[in-house]
Amino acid sequence: MAEQVALSRTQVCGILREELFQGDAFHQSDTHIFIIMGASGDLAKKKIYPTIWWLFRDGLLPENTFIVGYARSRLTVADIRKQSEPFFKATPEEKLKLEDFFARNSYVAGQYDDAASYQRLNSHMNALHLGSQANRLFYLALPPTVYEAVTKNIHESCMSQIGWNRIIVEKPFGRDLQSSDRLSNHISSLFREDQIYRIDHYLGKEMVQNLMVLRFANRIFGPIWNRDNIACVILTFKEPFGTEGRGGYFDEFGIIRDVMQNHLLQMLCLVAMEKPASTNSDDVRDEKVKVLKCISEVQANNVVLGQYVGNPDGEGEATKGYLDDPTVPRGSTTATFAAVVLYVENERWDGVPFILRCGKALNERKAEVRLQFHDVAGDIFHQQCKRNELVIRVQPNEAVYTKMMTKKPGMFFNPEESELDLTYGNRYKNVKLPDAYERLILDVFCGSQMHFVRSDELREAWRIFTPLLHQIELEKPKPIPYIYGSRGPTEADELMKRVGFQYEGTYKWVNP
C-alpha cells in the first residue's frame, strides 16, 4: 500500500466541504435556525453545542446559521458558553472563530407547556436576519415526558411559513410498544414523516454505516452471507464503567431499553437485511423493517440478565456495585447486563442465532459485530482449526478484520490463527472521521433520513421486546451478580454456547 501524504486539518475539512456542497440537498446560502429545546441540560452542553461548534469551526454548516437555545432556566448566552465550552476542545488559535460562533447564538427562556412562551420564541426567531423565511431545525434534547406539549406548541407557534421545518427526537422513544405508539401517533398528527428525525446516534458511527458497503459492494461476501456458512452472529456493546452516581436515570430504563432495543437491534438489521433497491432512505429502511418483521418476540429462556457488584480487589469506582450508587433505588432489580438470542425467521437466516450482548462495568470498552462461520467440513488438521470470524469493530479503534487459519512457519503443516486486517487509523491517516452527532446533524440539514429511525421500524423493535420488558417488570427477577471489570455473568457464556457459538479464547485482536 502506497504511503499517504499527511494533510493538514484545513485540507481534510476542505475535502469534506467539497463532498457536502456538491450535493443538491445542502442549501449552503439559505438562512437556517437550529433550535435546541432543553438548552440547559446535560445532553445540550456535552453533545449538541459542542457538535454545532465543530461543524461551524470546520465550515460545514450553511453560511447563515443561527443557534437558539430554549429552556425553562433563566440563562444568558454567557451562561450557555460557560457550561458548554469546556466540552468544545477549542484551541487558543480558534479564539476569534469561537467569538464568531457565540455571536450567532441567542437564548430564550420559557415554559414547555405555555403557548405564550412559544409565541415569544417565534418572535425572537423572526427578528433574526431573514428569520421569518429561514429553515428551522428543532432538536428535542428533553425528557420524553414533555415531548407531547413541546411538539404541539412548536407546531402551533414556531413553524417557518416559507422555509422547511424538521424536528429531531432523542431516544428513548417511549418505554414499550404502547407508549411508543402513543408518542408516534401524537407526533405524526403534527408533522409529516419526512419532517421527523428520530435519532439513534449509533447509526451515525462510521463502521455501522460501513456495514452496507461491506455487504453490498464486495462480491466475495454475497455468496457466504447466509445460514449455510454463518453459524452465529454476535452483536456486542461493552462499557468498562458503571453508573457513577447517575444511576437514578438509568434505573428508569435499564440496559435493554438503553442499548439493546435500539443500538444493537439497528446493527442487527444492517447485518441481516436484503440488498435495498438503492441507497435512498426509504429503500434502506424498507429492508430493515422486513428483517424486524421476521423476528419473533424474545423468549425468556433465551435471556440472561445481570447486575454488577463491587470488586473487592478493585480501586475507586470498581469497588462499588450498582446498588451502592446513592441515586439507585434500594434493592433495585434493574439489569445492567443483558444477553438475548433472537432468530430472523426467513430463508437466508433460518436457524442462525443472533446474540445481542450489552452491559456496564465490564472488562473493556468495545462495540462490534462478529460473524462466526461454520467449521470446515472434512477436517484434515486433527481438530487444530478454529472457526473463521469476520469482525466489524465499531469502537474504539474502528477496524474490519477476518480471523482465519494460516500455516505456522516451519517444517510442518501446523495451522495457527491469524488475521486479515483493515484498521482505519492506519489505512486512512488523512481522513477526519466525523463524530456520530456531527454526521447525523449534517444529515438533518441535508434532509437525508437514511440513518434515522422510521415509525414502522420503531414499532417493530418495541413489538419484539415489550413482552419481555413487561414480564421483567411484573416478576422482578433478581439479576445474576457479576463482578465489576469482569466479562459479565458466566451464564451468558453458557447461553451463547448452547445456541452454537464457540468461544476459543486463544486469539485476541490487537490494534496495530
Rank of each mutant, 00 (worst) to 15 (best):
P240V: 09
S117E: 12
Q11S: 13
A44R: 03
G69K: 00
L96S: 14
I224H: 06
M125G: 05
D113V: 08
I154T: 08
I162F: 15
N185W: 10
F241C: 06
G163T: 04
G247H: 07
M212S: 01
A116T: 12
F56E: 00
G174N: 00
G38S: 01
I167M: 15
I187F: 09
Y70M: 13
C232S: 15
E193I: 03
G38M: 04
A6K: 13
P62Q: 06
R198H: 03
I256M: 14
A109L: 09
F138N: 03
F26A: 10
R175T: 06
G248S: 06
N122P: 00
L140Y: 09
F101C: 00
R215K: 08
K205D: 00
S160L: 07
L121V: 08
R215S: 01
N105W: 12
D251Y: 02
L214W: 12
R215T: 04
E63A: 09
I256K: 00
R219C: 08
Y112R: 01
I36Y: 01
I67L: 07
I35N: 07
R120Y: 15
K152D: 12
R17E: 10
A141Y: 03
K152I: 13
R72H: 02
S106G: 07
E19V: 08
R104V: 09
Q22R: 13
A71Y: 00
L214Q: 11
P62M: 07
R198V: 05
Y197Q: 04
G204I: 01
W225C: 02
G222T: 11
V68W: 02
Y70V: 14
S132D: 12
E206V: 07
N229V: 08
E85R: 06
F221K: 01
Q119F: 14
G204H: 01
Y49K: 00
L7M: 12
V150E: 01
I52F: 09
K47F: 04
S8N: 15
Y197A: 02
D113H: 14
S188C: 09
R81M: 10
F56Y: 12
E244P: 08
F216Q: 05
Y112D: 00
A149Y: 15
I255M: 12
S157Y: 13
S160G: 12
G242P: 04
D114R: 11
K47P: 01
E170Q: 04
T243K: 01
A71V: 01
R136E: 03
P223N: 15
L183G: 03
D114F: 08
V169M: 06
F253A: 11
Y197F: 13
Q209S: 12
C232I: 02
E156W: 12
L75V: 11
M125S: 08
F138T: 05
T236E: 14
R104N: 07
F56D: 01
L128H: 11
G245W: 07
F237K: 04
H155K: 14
G222D: 15
K95C: 11
F221Y: 15
D42C: 02
I35T: 11
E99A: 10
A71D: 01
N122W: 09
R219H: 09
D200C: 01
E85T: 09
A90I: 13
F88P: 00
L43W: 02
K89C: 13
E148H: 12
E94L: 06
M125Q: 03
R74W: 15
V208W: 03
R17P: 14
N135R: 07
D176R: 04
V169A: 08
R192P: 14
F241A: 05
P86T: 09
L183D: 02
E156P: 07
G41F: 03
Q83E: 10
I234K: 11
E85I: 11
L190T: 10
L121H: 03
F102M: 09
S123Q: 15
D42I: 00
H129I: 13
L211R: 03
N218R: 02
L20R: 11
R227P: 04
F34T: 07
E170M: 03
L203E: 00
E19W: 08
G204T: 00
Q111L: 12
G69C: 05
Y139K: 00
Q28E: 07
L190C: 13
I162L: 14
I255S: 01
A25M: 15
F87G: 06
Y70S: 09
Q133Y: 13
P86D: 09
A109R: 12
V12G: 07
L121A: 05
H27E: 14
Q11Y: 14
I33E: 07
V169K: 02
F87H: 14
F88G: 00
R57H: 05
T145I: 07
L60W: 07
I196Q: 06
G222L: 11
L203I: 01
G131N: 14
K152T: 12
W54Q: 12
S188R: 09
I230E: 03
L214F: 10
F191E: 01
S179L: 04
